[in-house]
Design a protein around this nucleic acid. Structure first.
Ligand code: NAD
Ligand code: NAD
Lengths: 231, 231
DNA sequence: CCCACTTTGTGCGTGCTTTCACAAGCGCGT
DNA sequence: ACGCGCTTGTGAAAGCACGCACAAAGTGGG
């Protein structure tokens, strides 16, 4: 008997907004690198590929950090968004499943730049365990609990085959990790309070295929669409 | 308020539904492998991790393929969803940028099983061009147009560094590819009629961090609410 | 000091999504 | 043949999300 009251939760920032903040942040940092001091919602929205009213509304959820007639101060906004997203602290990440994908992730340098530190790599294959990948020793999956504790892991990445993913997720949860990023093509079952996000290549391709097919079906004879926006 | 162009709801399957169909499909194929002949919306919804009413409404967009009192015939539903998603035909995929990620994608066997065939790999680095990855020769990016034409590529995957992504996207579009899957952390600018989907690791991690921080704020020992925001 | 101009913050209408709730449909046992 | 229990398909309601349009708020020139 699970009591499921809707969400009397004091809803802070809408999920749709949270999902866009990282995009804004990236655009802002590009501006910052270019030495821009302030930016209007119109320009920032252009860089982020969204409607400017949407951007302003999104930012308004963080507070009023803009100046009418001027725009937003880039540096300050970077700080505010970073703080809101929790990027002012470091997050320790463990990757389980050091195969094709796991290795690519481990070798990817783009994480560290945002406060995410890959703290550990784990695998079950004796062939892989003990090897060094991206300057880290691959540990055996049996050490998961120890590693999580010792390294203070708070985000778990699952890059194992589908069959092993649920088991690994369970161990992560058991060990106290309540944020999981899952690359395996399965629906993970986790208790309330654990946050799972999935990245699923195959689904993305299928969605593309759907739209491509629809275009092909309907547009039999070159239906042209005029106009492109987004400057 | 007078005469609005009647909703062009012809082929209208809601986007949200389209995004879930692949999940249902996968769950159904698992059932099929297990020899299950029929399944109720309740059970299938459980396997797919969604609400059963939502699942029924989603399926109702494809037509009425269920039997009241019984459920859905697994095999038939697999076929209907596959057809709707356009998986009954083959899709030719080209991957550009054969680095860490591109190689992982190329070596990933899970695509072929769904009608996606990796037809070509392209890169700009002379060091990489000419090598064989996953039984395919890596071609030089200059051949993109030829490859697209010769192999009938209809889906392009971009796994290059951010700086090169827009350029590659433009060439894909120019060559007639109107479905693009982008792994580079940039907002791509493409004309109307071109479908871009992005997979962005860094964004996923940042969203996880946001929720993790929120949990930590609220869950704090002793402090129920640790002061929200600064008004 | 005032005015013309710029840009933010947001009220509001519109349309999409989710969820509930239940009548209608189907199979089975009697 | 009939009713009972199960399950679908779908109105209707509630909740979100988006984007327009505009007042409010700020800047700078004269
Ligand atoms: N490679 C890709 O591009 C790609 C694309 C889409 C999805 N995926 C998914 O990502 C996952 C990984 O893909 P991959 O290509 O890297 O597979 P892989 O087979 O190359 O690697 C999987 C790794 O997980 C390890 N492993 C297996 N069971 C384990 C367990 N219980 N605990 C710890 N480690 C375990 C294996 O030893 C292996 O090293 C799969 O679920 C796959 O479907 C991969
Ligand atoms: N590796 C990961 O796990 C990971 C994770 C998240 C995002 N990404 C993103 O995916 C992209 C690829 O990552 P990676 O780790 O494979 O990088 P990488 O540097 O290993 O590989 C990039 C490849 O692209 C090639 N390339 C560069 N410019 C090109 C051009 N104009 N045309 C064709 N090929 C070109 C390079 O020669 C190289 O082989 C990057 O944008 C990265 O930010 C990667």
């Amino acid at each position: 008997m699970i009591s499921r009251p809707p969400r009397p939760r004091e809803r802070g920032i809408p999920d749709a907004t949270v999902a866009r903040l990282p995009v804004y942040l990236r655009a802002l940092q590009a501006l910052q690198d270019r030495g821009t001091a302030t930016v209007s919602s119109e320009d920032l929205a252009g860089a982020a590929g969204v409607n400017s009213a949407k951007l302003r509304k999104d930012l308004s959820h963080l507070g009023s950090y803009g100046t009418r007639g001027v725009g937003y101060e880039v540096e300050y906004l970077v700080y505010q968004i970073s703080r809101e997203l929790g990027l002012t602290q470091d997050w320790s990440v463990a990757i389980v499943g050091i195969g094709n994908l796991g290795r690519a992730l481990a070798n990817y340098g783009g994480f560290g730049t945002r406060g995410f530190r890959i703290a550990a790599l784990l695998d079950a294959d004796p062939e892989v365990v003990g090897r060094t990948v991206a300057s880290l020793d691959v540990r055996h999956i049996d050490n998961l609990e120890d590693v999580v504790r010792d390294k203070g892991v708070s985000i778990g990445v699952i890059a194992t085959p589908a069959g092993s993913a649920q088991g690994v997720a369970g161990r992560f949860v058991e060990a106290g990790v309540s944020s999981i990023l899952n690359f395996a093509p399965v629906v993970l079952n986790v208790p309330d309070g654990v946050d799972v996000r999935k990245v699923d290549l195959s689904i993305e391709l299928q969605i593309l295929a759907f739209h491509a097919q629809r275009r092909a079906d309907g547009d039999g004879r070159g239906a042209e669409r005029a106009g492109l926006e987004v400057t």
